[in-house]
Design a protein around this nucleic acid. Structure first.
Lengths: 227, 227
DNA sequence: AATTATTTTTAGATTAATCTAAATTTATTT
DNA sequence: AAATAAATTTAGATTAATCTAAAAATAATT
């Protein structure tokens, strides 16, 4: 498995997940756009990936990952997000700068390294950008989470991840010190405009509906009766 | 700088350092032997490296690194050894297995990553195999160390590194729990056969001349009057 | 439905890194 | 010093990954 092949698989998976209409096939041009290459180069690569049974590719009809291809792609995303977590949590790099470095690290092949790294980081479920980290079996966590727009006043929650992370949103969360893993208490949900009032480590913060609607949270049963 | 180019530079530096007669030029066949490739492939690569002013290559006459080439090669060795240290010290992998993983990690390009990793590891001077880690300026540490065959009874030393590490020697040192960084007290040096008796954390151990002659140590002024 | 536009694929080149086989240069030995 | 052996280089191919330009297929529009 070459670096180029791995890059293509990852891009195809991301396009499949982002696809508007479910089960629609990813197109040659979509891939070329993301990889920043010519469609003809994509066609060449697709033939090679098909040869290896990593994609189901039909001329002029688009692409779909096979089971094996999907598994590989999820492994790459797992590696990428674990490395990003390491770079930010352990080495203190900024989440703004780690992507290109993780882009290189994700191509390092070693199952044992990956396992140990995961353990070293405490089996994190989300990376510093709030993206879920697939587990060893390729399953994404936090699928049982809910958006912060559905929380109930009086309950406690853990902040799990971000739905569609953008740099501006991440910067904002940095500023108000709302970090992944934070536990908070919902003081109030404003029925009028859906804004949420939280209490977190003694400090209070307000979130608009638009922000709350990007944040994935999980009820924290254990801390239910904290206040 | 491609991965292949980096691999060649590293091999050439290692051959230069291991050269019997100083200033002798590294040969095409030597490189081919180490890289496990054909001499003709080496010739091709040497032309490319010469083009980039990384080696001083004269047809039929052999190779020498230029200043720039040497700097690059030292950076690669630095990366390799820092990663090996990370893998063993932080992730708990065995020094027996880390080489091929570090071989991949050393090709990750990021100055900031390297700086932070070095800091995270506490600026180590030797890797888990006892090899010295070049610093940011490409200088090798422990050049002021001495071999354990020159120690004086009654003094305290720190175990810095290993002269020519082999798996069997490393395993032996593991077994007698003599680790890099260990501080020990020299109880006695046997004039008859040069064997050395050490005391280390209350335990005593004997080393033959042959073993002691591979171990790099440094007088530990601060602990001079421990006993 | 016919035409136009868009998407996708093919054909043919290019570059890095490798190979084999043959030619050349240097080293070694009679 | 001539002959032989060894090391090195060249010439010509090969593979992965890319490109450009042209051809073919699909989609959109009149």
């Amino acid at each position: 498995m070459t670096i180029a092949e791995e890059d293509y698989l990852k891009v195809i998976l991301k396009l499949e997940l982002a696809q508007e209409e479910l089960h629609a096939r990813v197109t040659t041009n979509q891939v070329a756009e993301v990889i920043q290459t010519k469609p003809s180069s994509v066609t060449d690569m697709l033939k090679r990936l098909k040869e290896k049974s990593l994609v189901d590719y039909i001329k002029y009809k688009g692409i779909k990952l096979t089971g094996a291809g999907r598994k590989q792609a999820l492994c790459l995303i797992r590696r990428h997000r674990l490395w990003e977590t390491f770079l930010v949590e352990k080495l203190g790099l900024s989440w703004k700068t780690v992507h290109p470095v993780a882009e290189q690290l994700e191509h390092v092949h070693s199952d044992e390294l990956l396992e140990r790294l995961d353990e070293f980081l405490g089996h994190p479920a989300f990376d510093p950008h709030g993206e879920p980290i697939p587990n060893g079996e390729g399953k994404l966590p936090g699928c049982d989470g809910e958006l912060m727009t559905t929380v109930k006043a009086g309950k406690n929650y853990t902040f799990m991840g971000i739905k569609e992370p953008t740099d501006t949103l991440l910067s904002y969360l940095d500023k108000i010190k709302l970090n992944i893993g934070s536990i908070f208490h919902v003081q109030d949900v404003e029925a009028y405009n859906g804004s949420v009032e939280l209490e977190m480590g003694g400090k209070v913060c307000f979130l608009t509906y638009d922000v709350a609607n990007k944040l994935v949270v999980k009820v924290n049963e254990k801390h239910e009766n904290k206040n």
